[in-house]
């Protein structure tokens, strides 16, 4: 456990001592600020009464997905690839840590960074509250869904960075997997029967829609969490494979 905490600390200091973190955070806030403004403007027009801005914010726009699938590979790309490139993976793998501890440490650091980014958007909620009533339920379930989705995506980014030596390659690979994951929804239109059901179940847009509406569905929780576990496990295996090479 101490080892995991040590890795989280180290990775966070890597993030915040480099300009990258501020660029990512800054762009994230800029884009989300823009999106929030557009949503507010649209919702406040006559005839759209009842729509909650935050519900649209969480997965309701194309921008949410664009920002997420680009931002997460950027956050995760360095975690393993850089260690390989610099050779520091050798000191890391010969320290008294299990491979799982290494992966969990790096995973958690990326998640903390992602969490901080979204924490800053809580300002929007406060802004909304200043001008009217807020239904807290969907706001929190929306944040919960966003964080769980982040965990799943980070675990995918984690896996790609663990198998490559070049961070750009890791990022592109992660982007490709995430895009395909998003795009797999399209199969629901061309398939029927069980296949269709599977892809409908895996439809991330639908999952986020539920969370944004305030519905916490166990199936959605299980989907996101088991996906995370799968890719964390694959990352551990990727690290272990390095030792057998």
């Amino acid at each position: 456990m101490n080892g995991v905490l040590a890795i989280i600390r180290k990775e966070l200091s890597h993030y915040f001592f480099a300009p990258m973190a501020y660029i990512v955070m800054g762009s994230f806030l800029l884009m989300n600020g823009f999106v929030f403004y557009v949503i507010l403007a649209a919702v406040s027009r006559a005839g759209s009464a009842g729509a909650s801005p935050m519900a649209i914010m969480f997965g309701g726009t194309f921008f949410f997905w664009l920002i997420t699938i680009i931002m997460i590979p950027v956050i995760t790309m360095k975690l393993g690839a850089e260690e390989r490139k610099q050779g520091t993976i050798e000191t890391l793998l010969t320290a008294p840590l299990s491979d799982l501890e290494i992966v969990l440490g790096k995973f958690s650091a990326a998640f903390v960074f992602y969490f901080l980014c979204w924490l800053l958007t809580f300002v929007y909620v406060l802004v909304l509250r200043a001008y009217g009533e807020i239904d807290w339920g969907p706001v929190f379930s929306g944040y919960l869904g966003t964080l769980l989705l982040g965990m799943f995506f980070i675990s995918i980014g984690m896996f790609t960075t663990m198998i490559s030596k070049n961070q750009i390659v890791a990022a592109i690979f992660a982007l490709a997997i995430l895009t395909m994951l998003m795009g797999s929804t399209l199969f629901t239109f061309i398939m029927s029967g069980t296949g269709r059901e599977i892809f409908a179940y895996a439809d991330l847009l639908g999952v986020m829609e539920n969370f944004a509406r305030g519905v916490i569905d166990t199936r959605n929780l299980v989907y996101l969490l088991s996906g995370t576990c799968l890719f964390v496990a694959l990352s551990v295996k990727a690290l272990e494979a390095k030792r057998w090479q």
């Binding site: 101490n2 080892g3 905490l5 040590a6 890795i7 600390r9 180290k10 200091s13 890597h14 001592f17 480099a18 610099q86 050779g87 520091t88 993976i89 050798e90 000191t91 890391l92 320290a95 008294p96 840590l97």
Partner: peptide, 22 residues
């Protein structure tokens, strides 16, 4: 070739390694 984290200070690095080693 003694790989080290270039962007940490010497103190931070040793602190990290000490924690990692329990």
């Amino acid at each position: 070739n003694n790989p080290l984290y270039e962007d940490l200070t010497v103190g931070e690095y040793l602190d990290f390694r000490a924690r990692v080693k329990g």
